[in-house]
Design a protein around this nucleic acid. Structure first.
Lengths: 356, 356
DNA sequence: CATGCTTTCCAAAACGTTTTGGAAGCGGCC
DNA sequence: GGCCGCTTCCAAAACGTTTTGGAAAGCATG
């Protein structure tokens, strides 16, 4: 149905117009050396003039590859593509286009389980490989794709999977470790961590980094100083931030799993007239555009989403073309972005309990 | 490469295992009546057990259809998928999945022109039909697809295209007409319109609606009361809002092409200590989630993006399957959402010039 | 001249599906 | 018995590509 008017020429037409066989035309276009330079030129010129584009179906049939690459959008409880996914998708799309592949997008909302959608993509030969993002500590998508031997690249990591797989991740552990060390040097002793209930692996590693640095300095993160919230419930985030700020002793430094959480925390702190950074240091992660415009600007870590997407795309292409031995998992460092939301610890003050 | 382990069974395997011909198996699965009920059952049972899924390449080759449907994301000057596109894509994806199609996404950023990307999608047999959004008054994508006879559905409309094409749009003309009439009844006489420089058709129609209502009441919208800004330059939006609020006489009612503009306008008004709605009525369009939380809540019009996407998807499927005669363009009404950003006109006050 | 090597080309097969145009078997009817 | 029609099945063709295994022609070598 597509393009029923002036149909695309096929190899057969080209060959008969050129007085050559289909084989020769095909091999000329592919650049094989067993066709003379003269004919090759003649064929190429004709193909270009007639606007020849090989049939995807024909290619697919013989090669077994579709030329498509898939992304199953992990909507979880939301029903729209958020800022992170929006940027990630654009990065993927451009990188894949550059490598001559096309991107297929399927969404897994509410009732549709992600693994089922993945199964559909795989069985329906919708893609030669798949990109996964928003990795969970235990991620059944990874298990499924490994079982099915489908090439995939995971943006993030999973915990406790023995089989080798290809992943790309930002080193949140080191980042938050360094942030914590810096804050400790600035005199902070009481820390808090604001994170998600959803078992996102990146949140886990960031916490591990924080806790490790504390332990190295003989400190630790008490259970009540960790607040977990749903990614989709703004009110819950506010309640959790409020609870952290009501602790006794109140943390003087709170690390947030993402900038989104940090921004909310800043708002709640403002309502409580807690001064940032004088009374409270806040550090986020992601370097969202808004983080620069918040007041104070949020100190955070930068991981270019577009860059990540481009790397992920390149890794997947290599994986598909050359197999798993050709591509190494990659852990990249996050850049520290110092802004106004952190500073020296406030002078020690008696805790409420000590006073009362 | 995909699924190289336990490969999918093909028609040939099924047929030899069942002791039937390929034809019969194919026709049994397709439900033709020229295979006995008993064999049909036997075939289906076996196909289900072996997890048979027809080869997309095979199908594609004979039918000429890929089963894919395309969306070229109009990034224009941005480089990420914004809230509108994010919701639109999710709606499309779900609706297409329900109809057994899969969605292909290509982005047209910066250097890549949208028409060229479209050409790539069409020539590369990436899709049997295409969805277009963010319609421009004169849109070369529409011209191109009509020329090429590629099935497409336009979300929005174009101006001055004689050939029939399939579109789906929200009636912004009627909406802003009604809004203006209401405001006039509330005593407003000085209107402003905040819109985009990009020639988006929806902004055009909304303006037409506003101007029409004014004309009916012997009023009109002076040129200087119209401010056009880039969709991608927040600072420019602020300057334009500021300019409108500095007019003499100052408009008592400003209609904004979208809620996004309305929110910015509210911010600027607050800075100038102009009270909304006492001194200024503001009306937006789109009913963004944030619009409810702004203070005051923004009076606006609702057009469910997800619903639009679902309709667009259904129309495209129908267009592909049944041809253009089977599907009518559709104009849907926007729902008026009255919130706190509009009210009666402030009592007349002398203009600055009259005083000075 | 016969032989072998190179260069340049091509026929045929294979990929997996749907559709076309029968064919075989069977029962009923004259 | 011969014929018709119905049910149930199937061989073959077609879609467009890539690859395999030559073949033909030209040239140099023995």
């Amino acid at each position: 149905m597509a393009n029923k008017g002036r149909r695309q020429p096929r190899l057969k037409e080209l060959s008969s117009e050129l007085g050559l066989s289909i084989t020769t035309v095909s091999r000329a276009l592919a650049g094989y050396s067993d066709v003379s330079a003269a004919t090759r030129e003649r064929v190429r010129e004709m193909a270009a003039r007639r606007g020849y584009v090989p049939s995807r179906a024909g290619r697919m049939l013989v090669s077994g590859n579709s030329g498509f690459v898939g992304l199953v959008v992990p909507l979880r409880d939301s029903h729209f593509i958020d800022a992170f996914l929006g940027e990630f998708i654009v990065g993927l799309s451009e990188a894949f286009t550059d490598s001559g592949r096309d991107l297929t997008i399927t969404t897994a909302a509410r009732d549709r389980r992600e693994v089922d959608v993945l199964r559909h993509v795989v069985n329906g030969q919708q893609a030669d490989g798949v990109v996964l993002t928003r990795a969970l500590s235990e991620d059944d998508r990874v298990t499924y794709l490994l079982d099915q031997q489908v090439p995939f690249v995971l943006h993030g990591r999973v915990l406790g999977e023995d089989r080798p797989y290809v992943w790309f991740d930002t080193d949140g552990e080191t980042a938050f470790g360094e942030a914590a060390r810096m804050l400790i040097e600035l005199g902070h002793r009481d820390f808090g961590y604001l994170t998600f209930t959803e078992p996102l692996t990146f949140a886990h590693f960031r916490r591990i980094g924080l806790e490790g640095a504390l332990r190295d300095h003989g400190l630790h993160l008490p259970d009540q100083a960790i607040a977990s919230v749903s990614r989709f419930d703004e009110a819950e985030v506010e309640r959790a931030a409020d609870r952290l700020l009501g602790l006794d002793p109140r943390p003087t430094a709170i690390l947030c799993a993402t900038d989104g959480l940090a921004i909310k925390l800043l708002e709640v702190a403002a309502k409580r007239t807690i001064n940032v950074p004088a009374d409270l240091s806040v550090i986020g992660f992601d370097n969202l555009p808004v983080s620069a415009y918040a007041s104070p600007g949020i100190t955070t870590f930068d991981q270019s989403i577009q860059d990540s997407a481009i790397h992920v795309a390149e890794m997947l292409v290599k994986l598909i073309d050359q197999g798993i031995d050709a591509v190494e998992p990659r852990l990249v460092k996050a850049d520290f972005i110092a802004r106004g939301s952190h500073g020296p610890a406030p002078p020690a003050r008696p805790s409420v309990r000590a006073v009362g």
